[in-house]
Amino acid sequence: MERFVSIEKSEPAGQIDEAKICAINRFSAIWLQKEEEGGTWMHGDYEVDLRNIKVGNYKEENI
């Protein structure tokens, strides 16, 4: 079974738990974030330390 998780992390909304679950279980994940915004720095280095997590930035006007 494969798992893929997407998390919108432009504002704090409890994603810290989902982020930790992705990290511990090595789920493939993409975290989407509005340009110049972010929910928290508590998981700000996950994409640096873990190869299974990538971050994608977007602009509001491109939605």
Score class of each variant (00 low, 15 high):
Asn25Ala: 07
Leu32Gly: 05
Tyr46Gly: 01
Ser28Glu: 07
Glu11Ser: 12
Ile16Thr: 08
Phe4Asn: 01
Leu50Arg: 08
Gln33Ser: 07
Gly14His: 04
Lys54Asn: 11
Gly56Tyr: 12
Glu60Ser: 07
Asn62Leu: 15
Met42Pro: 00
Lys59Asp: 06
Glu61Trp: 15
Arg3Cys: 03
Tyr58Phe: 14
Gln33Pro: 00
Gly56Arg: 14
Pro12Leu: 14
Gln15His: 10
Phe27Leu: 11
Ile24Leu: 12
Ile16Ala: 06
Ser28Val: 05
Gly38Ala: 02
Ser6Met: 12
Ser10Gln: 03
Gly44Leu: 06
Arg3Val: 11
Lys9Trp: 11
Ile53Ala: 03
Trp31Gly: 04
Ala23Gln: 08
Gly56Thr: 10
Arg51Tyr: 09
Ile53Tyr: 02
Glu8Pro: 02
Ser6Leu: 12
Gly56Pro: 00
Val48Trp: 10
Trp41Thr: 15
Ile16Val: 08
Gly38Ile: 03
Cys22Gly: 02
Met1Cys: 04
Gly44Met: 05
Gln33Arg: 14
Ile7Cys: 04
Arg3Tyr: 06
Ile53Ser: 02
Ile24Asp: 07
Ser28Arg: 13
Gly14Met: 04
Asn62Phe: 13
Val5Ala: 04
Gln15Asp: 06
Val48Met: 09
Ala19Leu: 14
Thr40Asn: 05
Tyr58Met: 05
His43Gln: 11
Phe27Gly: 02
Gly39Asp: 02
Tyr46Trp: 03
Glu8Val: 04
Arg51Val: 11
Val5Trp: 03
Asp49Gly: 06
Asn57Pro: 00
Tyr58His: 06
Ile53Gly: 02
Glu2Ile: 10
Leu50Ile: 10
Ile21Met: 10
Arg51Lys: 15
Val48Ala: 09
Arg3Glu: 00
Gly38Ser: 05
Val55Gln: 01
Leu50Asn: 08
Ile21Asn: 07
